[in-house]
């Protein structure tokens, strides 16, 4: 997906004509038994059609026929299917889990696509054309020629207050979103402030309320970005999307406004004060340190710091 700005969306929809058809399965390095990027072309087409609708109705949950993937539910089967439907042979893929490129989940998904699609992979946010993520948005701002694919466990933001899917669908359809504020009200009543710190609900383009997947609320403001954002929930068989430069507003109260909070510390490794930090406990005595959760961001800053020295 190396085309210009507008082709990010168009490419997804139309598919990379020719390049992923039969012949591509014979490419060097790709496991021969599989079609390009594991999924068959009809399935990819089905997913792209769902994506087209998702992009057209920002924040709306589009049902799709989620396939069995060679990994358990909860490991990113939704995100993997979206990535598979988007990938072209000349793409560069980055996979992160909680911001890190080197965790088990990230490594296995990256390897999966190396094996089934033989695409280039990278850990550098700026070099990637497709980034699949679980629980984070990279610190480095994304560009219009990039796609961010989220893994989503539970796509329905109102699930825990209204378990009936028939009812929540109707509430979405009729824009009855009072219930979302009940959730925030409960937070303030119980904790004195809005304690929801991840999967913080947003309203997309003034219409659909959406679960941004379990990213920290620190990342919420970043969702108004240049890149196309796609969300896939494999077990729940739902796809939704935020097109580039779409308005994404975090819900709040007038007297308890949304705050994109993070630990009030600087990264112990790179010194960054503007990035989301993980708390790491370093010994049995409870000594802790704070480090960037975005390993690429942290590594790049550390390298730059050493060069400067």
């Amino acid at each position: 997906m190396s085309g210009g700005s507008s082709s990010a969306v168009a490419g997804v929809v139309a598919g990379p004509a020719g390049t992923t058809e039969g012949s591509s399965a014979m490419m060097d390095g790709q496991a021969e038994a599989y079609n390009f990027a594991y999924l068959d072309e009809e399935t990819k087409r089905m997913i792209r059609r769902a994506l087209l609708k998702a992009v057209a109705i920002p924040g709306y949950q589009v049902p799709f026929a989620s396939r069995e993937m060679p990994m358990p539910y909860g490991w990113g089967t939704g995100g993997v299917q979206l990535t598979a439907a988007c990938l072209r042979p000349d793409d560069t893929l980055k996979v992160i889990d909680q911001g890190a490129d080197d965790t088990t989940n990230a490594v296995s998904i990256r390897r999966f696509f190396q094996r089934t699609a033989d695409v280039a992979v990278t850990e550098r946010t700026a070099e990637a054309t497709v980034i699949q993520t679980r629980h984070r948005i990279p610190e480095t701002p994304l560009r219009e020629d990039q796609i961010l694919v989220y893994q989503v466990p539970i796509p329905e933001p109102m699930r825990f207050l209204e378990p009936r899917e028939t009812e929540t669908r109707k509430m979405h359809a009729l824009e009855e979103y009072g219930l979302m504020h009940v959730k925030l009200y409960e937070d303030i009543a119980r904790h004195g402030h809005i304690a929801t710190s991840y999967a913080y609900p947003v309203k997309v383009e003034g219409r659909y309320v959406m679960d941004p997947s379990p990213i920290p609320k620190f990342d919420n403001p970043k969702m108004e970005m240049a890149a196309l954002q796609l969300f896939g929930a494999g077990r729940e068989q739902r796809i939704y999307a935020i097109p580039p430069h779409t308005r994404v507003v975090s819900l709040d109260f007038e007297d308890h406004p949304f705050e994109a909070s993070k630990a009030d510390q600087a990264c112990a490794l790179c010194g960054a004060e503007d990035s989301y930090l993980d708390e790491v406990i370093t010994d049995d005595a409870g000594t802790r340190m704070y480090v960037c959760s975005d390993t690429d961001y942290c590594g790049t800053r550390q390298a730059a710091g050493e060069e400067a020295r």
Partner: peptide, 21 residues
């Protein structure tokens, strides 16, 4: 599963009340 205050407040929020206090 929602507090008494949240139960009473729901209808207010449903018609657009956005001031917690």
């Amino acid at each position: 599963g929602v507090s008494a205050g949240g139960n009473v407040g729901e209808r207010l929020m449903a018609v657009g009340a956005r001031h917690y206090g």
